[in-house]
């Protein structure tokens, strides 16, 4: 289990890079890396040499999230003005512009089959589900209010939803909130299942293990990475080691490792079996907002890990 630094690109954006994701290879294009930045652009990169494929404009205020459709043909990007732009990867034609006022838009993720886009809905304390065929809002998964609180209470602000993740089966969905709680939903029945407690500060990133659909990994401002059994409602382990907020987590395609990016400027690779960090990359000089494994490992070359940071750079690593 090892990360090997491959290449970095300085000032790939004009400002902080806040989001990244991998576009799977489609019949029309090879796999690409998608990044979103405070400079209001979304850029597509060729991972082989980090050459710029295209720059998408059209967002106002910073781009906070990007999502890739499993087909690799469609992608979505969201900015702080709460617009989601869905576009065709090849032509850059806008397919749809999504908005669900007054809900903000934070993280987004397509479900594994590509039929639904889940969007973390900020202060609405809910996750919005958009149908990808007609681009209609099909469902709103709301976090239930704590018992005894009145609807008028401002307390719901604490359930501000930041992050969202689909289980590999697409049946379950988890979302993380400002207060540190994680809520798990049954998507088909549109039903709230339970909370996963343990974090006490905002949960900014969630990722299911691709191999074990019960295992959910979370990163929080409390500097910890937790592994939960999302169905059994148990905290499997808590790993500490970052010296500041954990901004992003991802599980490797083989399910054996966890990568994390933190505001302490490092990327760490964790061995969940040993419950410890096995490697720390220090090539970034500012907060690391995104780490993402390429979903399909490329056989002998291992799989790629990308990290993006406030230092305006992208780094690529080989994971093996």
């Amino acid at each position: 289990m090892k990360l090997a630094w491959l290449r970095s690109l300085e000032t790939c954006h004009q400002d902080c890079v806040w989001a990244c994701t991998w576009l799977p290879a489609s019949d029309k294009s090879a796999g690409l890396l998608l990044t979103g930045s405070l400079d209001e652009t979304v850029k597509l990169w060729n991972p082989d040499d980090l050459s710029l494929v295209r720059t998408n404009t059209g967002h106002c205020l910073g781009v906070v999230s990007v999502a890739a459709h499993p087909s690799g043909r469609i992608a979505a990007s969201a900015s702080m003005d709460s617009f989601i732009r869905v576009f065709d990867v090849e032509s850059n034609n806008t397919i749809a512009t999504l908005e669900a006022p007054p809900s903000e838009v934070w993280q987004m993720q397509f479900d594994p089959r590509g039929t639904t886009l889940a969007v973390a809905g900020g202060s609405s304390a809910s996750v919005k589900l958009w149908d990808t065929a007609e681009w209609k809002l099909v469902s709103t998964l709301s976090i239930p209010r704590p018992e005894g609180s009145k609807p008028s209470d401002k307390g719901n602000n604490k359930k501000f939803v930041l992050s969202v993740a689909w289980s590999p089966s697409g049946r379950q969905l988890a979302c993380g909130s400002m207060d540190g709680s994680i809520s798990v939903f049954d998507v088909q029945r549109a039903k709230f299942l339970h909370h996963l407690d343990g974090h006490t500060m905002p949960v900014r990133s969630l990722a299911y293990s691709p191999l074990d659909p019960r295992v959910l990994v979370s990163g929080s401002d409390d500097e910890c990475i937790h592994m939960y059994d999302a169905e059994g409602k148990t905290l499997l382990t808590s790993m500490s080691g970052h010296s500041s907020w954990v901004l992003s987590v991802d599980v490797s395609p083989d399910g054996a490792a966890i990568a994390s990016g933190s505001s302490d400027r490092t990327v760490k690779l964790w061995d969940p079996k040993m419950r410890a960090a096995v490697q720390t990359m220090t090539n970034h000089t500012d907060q690391v907002w995104g780490v993402k494994f390429e979903a399909v490992g490329g056989g002998a070359r291992g799989s790629l890990l990308a990290s993006v940071s406030d230092d305006k750079s992208i780094s690529l690593y080989n994971y093996s």
Partner: peptide
């Protein structure tokens, strides 16, 4: 390394 019920986690 016993897994713990996540409800108890904040009180660990």
């Amino acid at each position: 390394y016993q897994p713990m019920d996540s409800c108890l986690a904040p009180r660990k």
